[in-house]
Design a protein around this nucleic acid. Structure first.
Lengths: 132, 132
DNA sequence: AGACATTACATGCACCTGCATTCAATGCAC
DNA sequence: GTGCATTGAATGCAGGTGCATGTAATGTCT
């Protein structure tokens, strides 16, 4: 009886999950990095921002830092620095939130929208190749 | 038409994969860390070593570093350091490989086997709770 | 044997991450 | 309004990761 490969217990499920995650995120990181100078998390953030923009009904154009952190599964501190990197590259801008001046809105710049539009096909292609 | 949640394209698949990975590995890291002083990768390595040991037919008791790296999806350098940490804690030992003296065998110590045995139930419980 | 490529692992380095802390702005009770 | 807990985000710090490189041992070709 084969001990390895396809089992049906949770451990095998977990290992398969780990394997897929490692494979895909590794490939994504390589492609996005080489071709567009973006990491996986960076793209994910741009993507959420762009998605918000494109959604006309109920769509948002600005997001709070914590809000984005939840969506991309990063700690608040990691996101704060990620935003700082994106800002340094001119892809997003931080804006004061008038209603609650503790808050900071993150906005896509035109350059950011452009980079996201360029990278999105690569992103989709890699995912299709691995999860299609 | 709902824009969020259950779609059937690769992007939704990928996000779901990211979500599950983040949730489970986060929970695992917390439980294994608090209760047994181990990280996810550390446990994974101990687990592979213990699994090799327990398999009598064709089972191996010692592994090369690169061999383990493939299984736990870590770079060779990361694994080298991880082994160093485990060795510092007395859970594994490095042994010279006589046949090829460039190689290094990694072996579970009794203490390592003990820690793994203690942590395995926690590991399984967390996985069952999240993937059951 | 001698020169060069390859392999296995270790290490310097830059960078990213999370935790704990800090700082400012709010909210709340009284 | 004053005092105190809470919240949103930034930052010091410790630690983990990959890439490029270093070192030693093997393999190969002549």
């Amino acid at each position: 009886m084969a001990r390895h490969k396809t089992g049906n217990n949770v451990i095998d499920k977990w290992r398969e999950l780990l394997r897929r995650h490692a494979t895909v995120s590794c490939a994504l990181d390589r492609e996005l990095g080489e071709r567009h100078g973006l990491g996986v998390s960076e793209f994910e953030v741009l993507d959420h921002l762009a998605e918000g923009l494109s959604t006309d009904a109920g769509g948002k154009e600005k997001f709070r830092v914590q809000e984005l952190a939840d969506e991309v599964h990063l700690s608040q501190s990691a996101l704060s620095r990620l935003i700082a990197r994106l800002e340094r590259e001119g892809l997003v801008t931080r804006a004061m939130c008038e209603a609650d001046r503790r808050g900071v809105f993150v906005l896509l710049t035109d350059e950011g929208r452009k980079r996201h539009a360029e990278a999105a096909p690569t992103h989709l292609a890699v995912l299709t190749a691995h999860l299609g």
